[in-house]
Computed example of a mutant assay.
Amino acid sequence: MKLPRLVSLLGYAGLIPFFAGPLWLSLSPATVPHWLDHAWLVWVGMIAAFMAGTFWGFALPAAEGPAGTMGLLFSMALMLAAWTAMTLARPAALTGLILVFLLLLLADFWRERTLGAVEGYFGLRTALTVGACLAIAWRLAL
């Protein structure tokens, strides 16, 4: 199966809010609404949990076997990690979310080799993870 173009477009579109918050805070901090930083953090956490859920979807067809069971457990652990990061205070939450995105990429590396590959998916995930981590690091630096 080849990755549909729409998946790539939606993936990259999902990075827009990742960069919009830090960009606004950098270019015009006096005009930033009070709710922006909270909304931005919720977006980042929601995407981390969503990506853990996609991992569940990849593992589900193989759930009867040991690799599928391991994939389901990885998915649950990653969702809990995203939730835990969201409960932390500001710098720790951002650092935790970077760690979650890196763990998601590592889990996808395992999934590609164990549960099967979708042409182009891991490359897309790598690019999106780098983008997400750069945006979070940018916000962390502000």
Rank of each mutant, 00 (worst) to 15 (best):
F101H: 12
L97V: 09
I98H: 00
M79C: 08
D108C: 00
L41K: 09
R90P: 15
L103I: 03
W43G: 00
T54Y: 09
A89Q: 14
T95G: 15
A52Y: 00
A49L: 08
G116T: 00
A52P: 04
A67M: 03
E112R: 15
T84G: 14
A107I: 01
L94C: 05
L60D: 04
A49W: 10
M79A: 15
W83K: 10
H38V: 01
L97N: 10
L105K: 03
L94W: 04
M76Y: 12
G116S: 07
H38F: 03
F101D: 09
M70N: 07
M46V: 11
T95D: 12
L103T: 06
F74V: 01
M86T: 08
G116V: 01
D37F: 11
L103D: 04
A89V: 15
I98N: 04
E64P: 01
L115C: 01
R90F: 08
E112D: 15
L97M: 14
L73F: 03
G57T: 03
M46F: 13
L94R: 02
G71K: 00
W83P: 07
I47S: 07
G53V: 02
F58Q: 13
L94P: 00
E64A: 05
T69Y: 07
T95I: 15
L106Q: 06
L106E: 08
E64R: 11
M79D: 05
